[in-house]
Design a protein around this nucleic acid. Structure first.
Lengths: 339, 339
DNA sequence: TGGACCGTTGTGCGCGTTCACAATACGATG
DNA sequence: CATCGTATTGTGAACGCGCACAACGGTCCA
């Protein structure tokens, strides 16, 4: 008795065929919903399947049809951020919903360490994944390269500059940033600064560009404090530095809600009232926005829809369709109390 | 030109063998690090692999070895909660780290709708997954049943009562709840209530049991307000009801940090100061704890370690080891400012 | 009665691996 | 020189499935 698992041999098509008194071919036909099967045979086979508890072996099926009915969602993100960012979970759920409708399985692949990246590349080339959705890739991301080399159908959430003509779904970060900054100005703020996070991402860079657009001639690099991540800690740090340089600041555009949450803490430390002394706006409309005190004015990012659209783009490619245009989604301003 | 993808034919073992001037068997041997292959042959094969860009086809490999080097992490959770709960992300990352060390791929499977559950069961029985980690299962969960029927190696995070002798990793929810409630009493609070969420989970039920333990003879069902989910919204609602019933309340044990965050909002609405008028403690030490104002006193739940330990338990089973005892992890009290 | 046609069914092959076994070469030992 | 063992290699089979093709029985029309 060495093995604890007595896992009985799995039933195969052959077993079903034997049980139903037909051939493997016929069983295969009912399995795949093909025509040319008599009602009699179909019923016998269905009964046999139930009786022997047959479940098709996906590996075998994959081997012959060269596909697996599973698509991967790749997030290449450091630990901390991943845990803090509620957008990712929403994207995940949106993608899952869309795939589920077409009976595809979502497999969530996370790349944390560089070792992960390597293993992931191997995994992807193993043929167990038909396509991928890539979230939050940076320019020069090794995963982007691996996916391209493999010729794997892919869709990006966001738009790193180096993905060539690969389909992507995104929002107009620049336009939205411009709009929300303008409204900050329109409500009377005159000394407006920005905490610009993640400039190595397209989203981060575009939000900064929108800020610059909005200020026009008034723009001055001194107004911008750059930090590496969309995180609370970086937001706090960025705000502290900004306060030092612009003690008379009366408006802040934080490039994400998490950053804004951190900035809010720094402002409180410094004894500034929000929104009376300083108005602040965020970006994402994530759960942070409502969690802050006061609730953040922000840009609504349709995270679930982004995931959903990306999934559909991958599915479309699998059907052989070609996707030319990027898919742009709306992201309205949500006006609350922080500015 | 019907197909857009010109995806060149993948190189196979045969191609490598041809290129290196050896047989498939020898190639397979170097691939799997087996002995009895000459240095000469090994070098030629390695060169050939690099040259033709060979990557083993996992489906084919799975078919013959009956395993896939992938293990699933299943979360059966409604939308909203999933997004709000930072513990899940930490568990995920912990599990990923442990699996990564043994070169296993983590596949995150989410079951949202009942249709998902059904598809998931099919997927699991498809043989593309060698084992599963199950998070936040309820008693009577159909996924638990499916996994047991399949005889799939599994490890649970938490301890639903109906998993038989399946291995699980958990913390002592009851003991921790008892301890933190006692300290609430020890700091002078006398009219202590509890917002008990998720009583259909072992964790929820155990936390309530710990509360009852701590109060001893003082316990009275009137002190407990039960809500369905570990969510902010339910916390708010529960606190409102509790305030109505115990207007003189001066201490609250919320059964999770998210619940505490909601309770905090309700207390603020009602004009109670924390911790002066009412002391409140949570459970989890999730990112909510520090995000609240004031920061929450709570129980530190080692989420990453839970994931890591569960992964190791699955791996051990795959090696044929038997896991008898449940794996219990420490969860110290973290004393902050909310009580 | 012969052939064409249609719905239905069975059979062999191949997908890309691994594994067990047989086969070879070579040196050491009797 | 025959024999044995050891290191290395090649060769079929098998994993479970889908697909192409051939084959069958029947109906219909000429």
């Amino acid at each position: 008795m060495e093995t604890t698992t007595e896992r009985r041999r799995r039933a195969t098509v052959k077993d079903v065929a034997l049980e139903a008194g037909v051939s493997r071919g016929t069983v295969s036909r009912v399995l795949n919903g093909q025509p040319y099967v008599s009602d009699e045979a179909r019923e016998a086979i269905e009964a046999a399947i139930a009786k022997v508890g047959f479940v098709p072996n996906r590996a075998a099926r994959s081997l012959v049809v060269q596909s697996s009915q599973a698509i991967g969602l790749i997030v290449h993100e450091p630990h901390s951020l991943f845990v803090e960012d509620p957008n990712i979970a929403s994207i995940l759920l949106g993608a899952n919903a869309a795939l589920s409708e077409e009976d595809y399985q979502l497999s969530f692949l996370i790349a944390d360490t560089s070792r992960d990246v390597e293993r992931l590349a191997r995994y992807l080339s193993g043929g167990l994944i038909d396509g991928v959705i890539i979230v939050s890739a940076r320019v020069g991301d090794p995963i982007t390269r691996a996916v391209r080399d493999l010729g794997l159908p892919a869709a990006f959430v966001g738009h790193p500059r180096d993905i060539g003509d690969a389909p992507y779904v995104a929002i107009d970060n620049r336009g939205a940033a411009r709009e929300i900054t303008r409204r900050l100005a329109d409500t009377g703020r005159t000394r407006i600064g920005m905490i610009a996070a993640a400039l190595d991402r397209d989203s981060g860079a575009d939000r900064l560009a929108g800020f610059v657009d909005a200020l026009g001639a008034d723009f001055d690099p001194q107004r911008v404090e750059s930090v590496p991540l969309y995180s609370v800690a970086d937001g706090r740090e960025g705000m502290r530095r900004l306060l030092e340089r612009m003690p008379d600041i009366d408006g802040v555009f934080a490039s994400s809600d998490a950053v804004a949450a951190g900035a809010l803490e720094a402002l409180r430390e410094a004894g500034r009232r929000v929104p009376e002394d300083v108005g602040i706006v965020g970006f994402d409309d994530s759960s942070w926005a409502l969690r802050c005190d006061p609730p953040l004015s922000t840009i609504h990012q349709p995270a679930g829809e982004l995931g959903r659209a990306a999934a559909k783009a991958v599915l479309a490619q699998l059907r052989g369709e070609r996707i030319e245009a990027p898919i742009m989604l709306d992201c309205p301003v949500v006006w609350r109390e922080s500015a």
